[in-house]
Design a protein around this nucleic acid. Structure first.
Lengths: 242, 242
DNA sequence: CGTAGACTTGAGAGTCATCAACGTAAGTGG
DNA sequence: CCACTTACGTTGATGACTCTCAAGTCTACG
């Protein structure tokens, strides 16, 4: 069951062609007519509001989503009802790739704030990818990146290493999108961060406090200031693959 | 630097067409002429022997590998020299998908026993994928599965849950390949298992002993006997996504 | 202004890592 | 064939990191 009917802002063509995320998103490396053809199958969807679900476990898979604005979290719920956060998704990143294989969604995705997505109907996308070799390449690249990234968190690292890596990673992703790498707002709660990093919320709270005491960061609720990025990096050097 | 020159068993065509792994590997869903065209670009490589590297971090990426026989492990080495096992790969599974994005390998892969692979040159594969829509679909499916699988281990589970899930997962994979799901040999050492599950080798040893005492398994060195698969499953229910 | 939820802080407990010693199997060279 | 070596695996004792439980603070919102 797709969660709820949502406005589809089609109207203006050139969703991709004028999008500021071109460099991060699928169209990278596509030009002219190829880009127009991709543009023709993309639909903007939203806005979703905080807590709205983009899709849920079991929903039939028919589209991949690219975050256009705002941010999302994806998560599963295990047999005992416990939630497991799989990732946070910023503009330009794809959602729903893990649903291709089984043909239905295997995780939930919800908006962490007011957010929109670009909908890429999979059937049309794959037929287009057969015609445009650059598109095939780009899809493969993004999926490959996804595989490499999910492997990063799978270490047995300390709470400090995990949180430092998380903050450094976020910083890099914000910078790529043209935002300040040293100052940004966390869209997600402590509980979500803790769950994502496989820690207790209390531990996250304590490590934040420790980092602040050491002058690494300044944090006020969701507002974050990375004061000493170099030293923060040394705190998570072992997770080098980022 | 590709590790070492290895014999390439081309010779007989029909590597894919007669392969017993067809149902697991890429050709699934391809027939007749399409299969022949895929077959034409695949080269069998090996045999590699225990400890031989298939590729190493930094090696230029130009091919995806499909395990044909034997088993491999993939792993990284962090800045402090510690090894991190990313996965074990059985016949029919793909290796090197995470190298597409960066264009070079981001992990090492080595043979755990005498093993062979099928080499899929990426450039030729992607051009073929634009001609055969079923091939594109299949590649996407396999990458999607990879993404979903790597997410599975990322929970904060107990040592028992992790090991139970590992054994159950292995069992399923062996069964899919036509082997007994209850009796098989572990190709990997305790140290590798422990590293993969983010545990100490001693912990793995102890949990094996505990499982044996409970009558869940019988284990002698690498020889494993799953005596009570149902009860083993209940031990890792929370990792339900498998 | 009051309540609910998010966040913080403290104290105690448990799981697992570390350190250490020992047992076993396989391979080597005499 | 037997000491010797090496890698692997098991078992025990101790300690640390982080979870759990609990109470308290702060913020947002109705």
């Amino acid at each position: 069951m797709q969660t709820r009917p949502v406005e589809v802002t089609r109207g203006l063509r050139e969703a991709c062609m004028s999008c500021s995320l071109q460099e991060l998103c699928l169209p990278r490396g596509l030009y002219g007519q190829d880009l127009e053809r991709l543009d023709a199958l993309v639909e903007r969807q939203g806005p979703y509001h905080e807590g709205d679900h983009l899709f849920r476990i079991g929903d039939p898979f028919d589209s991949i989503y690219a975050v256009h604005a705002g941010s999302y979290k994806s998560y599963t719920v295990d047999s005992e009802g416990r939630e497991h956060v799989l990732g946070f998704h910023l503009p330009g990143e794809l959602l729903g790739l893990d649903a291709i294989y089984p043909g239905h969604h295997v995780c939930n995705a919800l908006a962490l704030d007011t957010a929109t997505v670009c909908v890429l109907p999979y059937a049309r996308l794959s037929s287009l990818a057969s015609q445009i070799s650059g598109l095939f390449t780009q899809i493969m690249r993004l999926m490959s990146k996804d595989i490499a990234d999910t492997a990063t968190l799978a270490g047995d690292f300390t709470a400090e290493e995990r949180l430092a890596a998380f903050l450094v990673g976020l910083s890099q992703r914000f910078q790529l999108r043209g935002y300040s790498p040293k100052e940004f707002n966390l869209a997600m709660s402590r509980r979500d961060i803790a769950n994502y990093l496989r820690l207790a919320t209390e531990t996250v709270s304590r490590v934040f406090a420790r980092f602040e005491k050491e002058g690494l960061i300044a944090v006020d609720r969701r507002a974050l200031h990375l004061l000493d990025l170099p030293r923060l990096r040394t705190r998570c050097e072992s997770l080098g693959s980022r």
